[in-house]
Computed example of a mutant assay.
Amino acid sequence: MKLQHYLGGLEGLDPISLETRVFVEPWEERIFGIHTAMMALSPQLDLEATPSTFNTEWTWADLRKGAEAMNPFDYFRFRYYEKWLGGISEYFVAKGYISQADLDARTAAFLSSSAALPMGGDVAVDARVRKYLMTGDDPRRERPVPPLFAVGNAVRVADPKSVGHTRLPGHLRNKVGLIDSVYPDAYTYLCDTGVDGVGRAMPVYCVKFDPEDLWPGNTETNFTFYADLFEAYLEPAATLRNL
């Protein structure tokens, strides 16, 4: 996670948008639909075959990788679904579905025309998307091994190298907390994140932290900070006072 993805405790980030609408512009609905269709057609899912030529894996992790790879200044400059559009476009170019030159040409042609975008689609593709929306992609699995930690154990958050995507918030690295609960079963992640160890099924814990340890001298009193963390991000720590 780069700077723009772990802002916990940072000040001076105003102005903050209070927009509550899910979609502000009509094109944002289309971007969401494209992403959903890509998720549904991703070949790792055990769903009915379709005539779609989309044949490479696409998950939420791929979408997040695109946003996390952005220059931080661009990240704050673009709207939410503009970031989605950038990540999806880069993916299609990288996977060879379209060349950058062709994408640029089609974009220029669209921007210079008032023609409406095509509507409708293949019946089998639509059916698979609807089924995906109903069933989803559950990350829960049977626990392969017993959890390493129990409720009340003191743990230290690891500080793994993470050149690319990670699920570990930056402001928790090297911090010490207490296991508040152990979730049943085990949980996978959408992809293997590499050296930071997340991907395969593993126990997940709710860990509680003293905010004063996270942001010394800059917190309110009488509250506790909780975070759900994969076991790969935790290691034993010396006994910590009760939170």
Rank of each mutant, 00 (worst) to 15 (best):
T135M: 12
V157F: 10
P169H: 07
K161V: 14
A116P: 13
R173K: 07
L168T: 14
R156I: 14
D159A: 06
V123D: 05
N153M: 15
A186Y: 01
H165F: 14
M134E: 08
D185N: 13
P147L: 00
L172P: 03
R173C: 02
Y132S: 11
R140S: 15
G121S: 03
G120H: 01
A150W: 13
G121K: 01
A116W: 06
T135N: 11
R128D: 00
A124W: 02
D137T: 05
P146D: 12
F149K: 00
L168N: 05
G152M: 08
D122F: 04
G136P: 08
E142L: 12
P118K: 02
P184V: 04
M119N: 14
P139R: 02
Y183M: 15
N153L: 07
T166S: 05
T166D: 07
I179Y: 14
A158H: 06
A186H: 04
D126M: 03
T188P: 09
V155E: 05
G152C: 06
L168I: 03
S162M: 14
R156K: 12
G120W: 01
P184M: 02
L178R: 08
Y187I: 03
L117N: 11
V145E: 07
V155H: 13
F149G: 00
L133D: 06
G121P: 07
A124F: 06
G121R: 02
R130N: 07
P144I: 10
L172N: 01
K131I: 15
R141F: 11
A154E: 10
M119Y: 13
P147D: 02
T135F: 15
G152T: 06
N174D: 08
G120T: 02
G120S: 06
V145I: 08
V123L: 15
L148W: 01
R173E: 04
A127L: 09
G177A: 09
A158D: 04
M134V: 13
I179Q: 10
H165S: 05
R130E: 10
D137R: 10
M134R: 10
R143I: 15
T135Q: 10
L133F: 15
T166C: 07
P160Y: 05
Y183D: 06
L178N: 07
A127P: 06
Y183F: 10
A150G: 12
G164M: 10
F149R: 01
P184L: 03
A116N: 11
H165Q: 12
P160G: 12
R167H: 14
P169N: 11
